[in-house]
């Protein structure tokens, strides 16, 4: 299996195997018109198996979304075919308009113009709760 190396773009590496697709969707990469590849179940010395996303182009990505889906992921910025910078992500304290509250009794269910805000309430269990009704995410 071979995916062409990218010249200027972004590689999201070390994604926990199985999370690549969810991250792809939440980041809105399906709406891009530049080449994007999701590589699933790649061999990794560190993790056994991992997913990788390669984006052939310069786009702005939400580190909050990456951190929310997988705080173990790393982001590599590729310039002229080389890794120009590399950074990790962490669990964001707050998620704004990333996921939406599923509680039908929540005020956000009838006032759709409200921002969907979730707060990190339990770091250990990666638990987020709706700011308004405190319902657990997912």
């Amino acid at each position: 299996m071979k995916i062409e190396e990218i010249k200027n773009g972004i590689v999201i590496d070390h994604i926990t195997a199985g999370k690549g697709e969810e991250l792809y969707t939440l980041l809105g990469l399906d709406k891009l018109e530049i080449p994007v590849a999701i590589m699933k179940n790649m061999n990794s010395a560190k993790m056994g198996k991992k997913d990788i996303i390669k984006i052939d182009g310069v786009v702005e990505l939400s580190t909050d979304i990456i951190g929310y889906i997988d705080p173990c992921a790393t982001v590599n910025i590729i310039k002229e075919g080389k890794t120009a910078s590399k950074y990790g992500v962490s669990l964001p304290r707050e998620l704004k308009n990333v996921i939406s509250c599923k509680n039908p009794r929540c005020i956000t269910s009838c006032e759709q113009e409200l921002d969907q805000i979730f707060k990190l309430t339990d770091e250990e269990n990666r638990e987020y709760r709706c700011l308004y009704c405190e319902t657990k995410a997912k």
Binding site: C106, I107, L131, E134
Partner: peptide, 22 residues
């Protein structure tokens, strides 16, 4: 609706007391 008084407090310029939200 749950959270409505919080929304009110985020927008009001006076104190809001939650008298029950659902």
């Amino acid at each position: 609706k749950e959270g409505a008084p919080l929304v009110a407090s985020m927008n009001a310029t006076i104190p809001v007391v939650n008298a029950g939200d659902g």
